[in-house]
């Protein structure tokens, strides 16, 4: 049976081995204290690596040859990445322009495809396309799949402008579109003439719209003295409109045409420059007939039948 009373172990007590003195030497002690100094630790852990890195960078930077080699290497890697097929632009697609303008845009872009998309300056390309007279606005973007997509909004010719140097097409804002010789408009356009006509295009278009009841008889408008319009008819008098409120004056003339067929009369010009007083100039024949009637040699009345 095991003894029930717990007895203390009374075997031989091993003699403790005499330990050497664990005291640190003065040098060790000081070194440890130095290492435990927070400032010293910070210097060693932060200051020293930073200094080493700065020193290495400086040493590297002082050698021109090494710096150039590094720069070349970086450029080469960059070139390699840029030349990858993922970044290459192969095709140019121009939308929203007529074939002639498309060719013009293509010429203006002057791209040597294929080209890396890193080398394309989209802003400059857009400026170059918008510098074309036939282009109102353009947007240039790089689409997926190697496309350079150019969306062009063309200028629409609204008027034919006859000047001393030539006949050109201008749009509704007065901008030059093309020379008439280069581009034949699809539909017949009204004609304007005179210096400064392109500066008052919207007024001209309004007058032409007002003159629509005259139909084909309107030949065009002439800008006079850069301030007022003349309406020129194919067969009939020239209507001189005032600088201010020309539309009202034209409407008055058209009203007279409706009532008295004034434009079918023997007149050279109808002068509305003073809107409150209309003046007409008769043809020489009509003037002669009038003088004969006034002298009684010809009876007055509508005897023409």
């Amino acid at each position: 049976m095991r003894p029930l009373i717990a007895r203390r172990e009374t075997g031989p007590v091993p003699l403790p081995r005499p330990r050497p003195d664990p005291a640190p030497s003065r040098l060790t002690y000081r070194a440890q204290r130095l290492w435990l100094t927070p400032f010293f630790r910070m210097i060693l852990r932060v200051g020293l690596p930073v200094f080493a890195m700065l020193f290495a960078a400086l040493w590297f930077a002082t050698d021109e040859e090494k710096v150039n080699a590094l720069r070349d290497q970086v450029a080469e890697v960059r070139r390699e990445i840029e030349d990858r097929p993922e970044f290459r632009v192969n095709l140019l697609s121009i939308e929203g322009a007529s074939p002639a303008v498309t060719e013009e845009v293509r010429g203006a872009l002057a791209l040597d495809l294929p080209v890396s998309s890193f080398d394309i300056d989209l802003e400059a390309l857009r400026a170059r396309v918008e510098a074309l007279p036939a282009v109102a606005s353009a947007s240039v973007r790089i689409a997926g799949g190697g496309y350079l997509s150019v969306d062009v909004a063309e200028r629409v010719p609204a008027l034919i402008w006859q000047t001393r140097t030539g006949t050109v097409l201008i749009d509704a804002e007065g901008h030059f579109v093309a020379a008439l010789a280069d581009r034949v408009p699809e539909a017949p356009l009204p004609m304007v003439a005179g210096a400064g006509a392109d500066l008052a295009v919207d007024e001209a278009l309004r007058l032409l719209a007002a003159a629509a009841p005259l139909g084909d008889r309107v030949r065009g408008l002439v800008r006079v003295g850069q301030r007022r319009w003349d309406v020129v008819l194919r067969d009939g008098p020239r209507i001189l409109l005032p600088a201010a409120a020309p539309r009202a004056a034209l409407d008055e003339v058209l009203l007279l045409q409706d009532v008295q067929q004034i434009l079918d009369r023997d007149l050279v010009r109808i002068d509305m420059r003073n809107p409150s007083r209309m003046t007409v100039q008769l043809t020489p024949d009509a003037l002669e007939t009038l003088s004969l009637q006034r002298s009684g040699q010809i009876p007055v009345g509508d005897e023409r039948g």
Binding site: P24, R26, L36
Partner: peptide
């Protein structure tokens, strides 16, 4: 002095400060 150094060094080491 050596004994004091032993004690102080061990305590400093445990405290991680000087």
């Amino acid at each position: 002095e050596r004994a004091i150094r032993t004690a102080v060094q061990a305590a400093q080491k445990m405290a991680q400060t000087r």
